[in-house]
Simulated assay, not measured.
Amino acid sequence: MSDVIGLHVQVQSLPDGDPEELAEVTGRLRTELLDLDVMAVDPVSEPAEPAHAKGLATVVGWLAIQLRTAEGLRALVNAVRGWAGRTDRVVEISLGGDTLKVTGATSAQQELLISAWLARHAADT
C-alpha cells in the first residue's frame, strides 16, 4: 500500500477560452478541492509539468494533487464531477497513466465510468 496517492487534474479550455479565464476557473476548482481531505492541491508549474503536457499553455488548467486514501480519491472524483457539472467543463483526472474524463454524461453513465476507474486503482491505495 502506497502512503501517498499522486494524481493530476486538468480543466479543459473552452474553444474560445483564454489562459487567464482557464487559470481563474482552475483556481475555483482548487479552492473546492482544498476543502477535502487532501494533502496538497497545487497548480502545476512549467518545470514539473506532466509528461504528456505540451508546453506552458497546456500547464494552465493543471493541478497536482496528493492524498492518502481510496476514500479520499473517491471524494475527490465526486467533487470534480459535481464541479464539472455545475460549470459545464470537461475535467481529466490522471493517475498512473490512466485518465478519467469527467464530462456532461448522464449521472448513470458517469457513475459507471467512475466506478470502473476507481476499481482499477483500488489495489494501488
Results as ranks from 00 to 15, higher is better:
W83L: 10
G96D: 02
V59D: 00
Q110T: 02
H121M: 01
M39K: 11
V11W: 04
V25E: 13
D16L: 12
D88P: 01
I65Y: 08
R81G: 12
D16E: 14
P50C: 10
A108Y: 05
A51L: 14
E24W: 11
A116W: 09
D124Q: 11
S107L: 14
L56Y: 05
T31R: 12
D3F: 05
Q66N: 09
G17M: 05
L113P: 00
A116N: 10
E46P: 11
A123M: 04
Q110P: 10
G55A: 05
L36F: 02
I5W: 00
D98W: 01
R68F: 04
V44P: 11
T31E: 15
T26Y: 06
V38D: 12
A64N: 11
S94K: 00
R30M: 06
L7Q: 03
N78Q: 15
I93R: 03
G72L: 10
T106M: 12
G61M: 01
V41G: 07
T125E: 01
V102Q: 09
A40G: 04
Q10D: 03
P43V: 07
L14A: 04
T106K: 15
N78F: 12
G85F: 13
S94G: 02
L56S: 09
G85L: 13
Q110R: 11
G27R: 00
T58H: 10
S115W: 00
T69G: 03
D88A: 14
A57H: 12
D18N: 14
N78H: 11
M1P: 11
A40Q: 06
N78A: 14
E111V: 07
H52R: 08
E24P: 01
R74E: 14
A53L: 05
A70R: 13
P50W: 06
E46W: 08
D124R: 15
M39I: 14
P47F: 09
G85M: 12
N78P: 02
G72E: 06
Q109G: 04
L112S: 12
D35C: 02
Q109C: 01
G61T: 00
D3A: 12
D3N: 09
A122R: 13
A116R: 15
E46Y: 15
M39S: 04
A53F: 11
T125V: 10
T125Q: 06
I114F: 03
A48Q: 14
S94D: 13
L14T: 04
G61L: 00
W117D: 01
A123D: 03
A75E: 02
L34K: 15
A51N: 06
G85N: 10
D35E: 08
P47Q: 01
E92C: 07
V9K: 04
S115L: 08
V90N: 08
E111D: 15
I5D: 04
A23T: 02
W62C: 13
L33I: 03
P47A: 10
L118R: 09
P47H: 04
H8M: 10
Q12G: 08
I93L: 15
Q109R: 15
L112R: 15
W62D: 14
R68M: 11
A51R: 12
A23G: 04
H8T: 05
L100S: 03
S45V: 15
V102P: 13
D42W: 03
L34V: 03
G85W: 15
G61N: 00
M39G: 04
D18I: 01
R120N: 11
K101S: 14
E46H: 08
